[in-house]
Design a protein around this nucleic acid. Structure first.
Ligand SMILES: [Zn+2]
Ligand SMILES: [Zn+2]
Ligand SMILES: [Zn+2]
Ligand SMILES: [Zn+2]
Lengths: 131, 131
DNA sequence: TCAGATATGTTATACTGTTACAAACTTGTG
DNA sequence: CACAAGTTTGTAACAGTATAACATATCTGA
């Protein structure tokens, strides 16, 4: 379950998020880790910072929530662009890479002198089950 | 400057945002409208809700901030996809539409039974001036 | 052992957004 | 005009998200 190189708190947060199988807010994580000794938001946010830097967790900006990476073996962190389809009905999140997209954006913005560092792509809608 | 069909508070918020020429947080807007009689966040959020629904203002999810539409005459609201390149150095925001992008995403997700309703695309990086 | 670095704990606070309810204004109708 | 219905605004309280500042503990290498 766990991943090498993580501290205790980082591992607790990562495992909780992985077990959830979907997005959680920082405060939901906090409440779910009180039994394990968590007391303050900062414990969660610090762990999330590291997990995000390592590409093991992503932040969903349009939800203010966090989700475990769907394929950590692919080193999402190294991709400039990770995209999410988020169902507004059931809350299900589908994570994907789309190289055409990435390339198009880089090309389009590069021509304008803009250097992308991190790209947020979140598609809100209805998933196949909820349509 | 103003736009027809807006109430007093909506017009005040829209004008302030337009004059700013860049993103503002809801509370920055509030503080800038105290002289005009604003007292509570809800006055700002209610106005923003309407302006966003009308496509005159966009929310930048990765900044928790709001920006006046760069080309309201094009009815951004009717596009599924409006994208933003946001400079991490100077805060400048460049709004654009990219139909190839929109089409690719629709095609890719449509094949999976996902029906997009609203898409967030925000590219954070360095603009030409700051590179 | 001891110093420096890293990780954690704790409190308080700042920032973002909503609920609930009351009052004022607008508009159409008898 | 009177007055009801709808819409806009005002106000207070609160809920949810995130960080600053400082203290303590733990780990690591000289
Ligand atoms: Zn990922
Ligand atoms: Zn669904
Ligand atoms: Zn626009
Ligand atoms: Zn710039």
């Amino acid at each position: 379950m766990s991943v090498a190189g993580l501290t205790k708190n980082q591992a607790l947060v990562f495992d909780k998020l992985t077990a959830a199988g979907g997005p959680m807010s920082a405060y939901q994580i906090l409440d779910n880790l009180r039994e394990e000794g968590f007391r303050a938001p900062l414990q969660v946010y610090r762990a999330l910072d590291k997990l995000i830097a390592d590409g093991l967790v992503h932040k969903l900006e349009s939800l203010n929530a966090f989700v475990a990476c769907a394929h950590p073996e692919e080193k999402c962190g190294s991709h400039g662009l990770t995209a999410f389809a988020i169902c507004n009905e059931c809350g299900n999140v589908f994570e994907f890479h789309h190289h055409g997209l990435e390339h198009d954006l880089e090309h389009f913005l590069g021509a304008k002198g803009f250097k992308p560092e991190k790209t947020v792509v979140e598609i809100r809608g209805k998933c196949a089950n909820c349509a």
